[in-house]
Design a protein around this nucleic acid. Sequence first.
DNA 1: CTCTAAATCAATA
DNA 2: TATTGATTTAGAG
Length: 249
Amino acid sequence: MPRPSRETYGDQKPPYSYISLTAMAIWSSPEKMLPLSEIYRFITENFPYYRRNTQRWQNSLRHNLSFNDCFIKIPRRPDRPGKGAYWALHPAAFDMFENGSLLRRRKRFKLMKSDKEMLDNELAALANINRFFFTPAETQPELGSSVQIPIPRVSSPPLNTTDTVLTNIRPKRSFTIESLISPDKPSHQDSPEQSFSPTSTNSQWTIPPYYDWRFKPPILLPNNTYYHQYHLPPAEDLLRVPRFVLPSV
DNA sequence: CTCTAAATCAATA
DNA sequence: TATTGATTTAGAG
C-alpha cells in the first residue's frame, strides 16, 4: 500500500482546518516562518482542492492568522525583499493538535494577558531594531558591535524575565504533510532540521532565529527605563546589503 | 442536543 | 496585507 502523499485527497477537501494547514506550511519552511503568499503557495501546491475558490479560503485564512494567538506576526527585515510580514507559530502552541485534532481542537489557543504583553515587548523591540536600518547610514551602529535598543512600555511591569511559560517547549509531532496525513505512524522521528531548536542561551525562546540578534535579559536603568541589548550580526551578507537611508523630510 | 471552534462574509485600515 | 465584527456552519462530546 502506497504511503499517503500530497495527492491523497485529490480534489476532495482535506480533513484539516485552516489552522492546521497554516501550521503545516509554516513548519515545513526552513526558518519556521513564512509570508502570507508562501502559505498560500504551500496549500495550493499540496492540496489541489484549494486551487479553486481562492478568494473565499484565503480570506478565511487571513482571518485565522489575525484572530488566533497561535500565529505571531514577525516584521520583515528591511534588507529582505518582498512584502508583508512573516508568520510564525507561537512556541507555546505546539501541542495544539494533541490527540490528532486537526479539524477541531478542544480548546482555542489563547494567550494570557501577561504572555501577550511579553510577546508584544519582544515584537516592539524587533520593530525598533528594524528602525536602525532606516537611520542615516553615518549614525548606524557598526555591525558586530552591541547596541542598546529602547523598549516601549506596553504594560507595567513591562517584562518578566523569570517567567517560565515559554521554557522547554517542543512540538509533540512534526508538521509535515506526511506525519499529519498518517498521524498514527507511531515511530515517526523528526529529522534534525524539523526539530525545534531554540537559539537563545536562556531557553526563553520566543522569536525564530531570523533576526540573528542574541537575546539578552532586559536592563533596568536608574531612571526606570528598560533596554534590550542585542548583538548585531557580523554576517557577511548583511554587510553587503545596501543600507537603507530615510529621506530627510 | 449543546457547546463553541471554525468558516464565511465583508467593512475598513 | 491585516484587523475586526457579525453571523452561520459544523465537529465532537
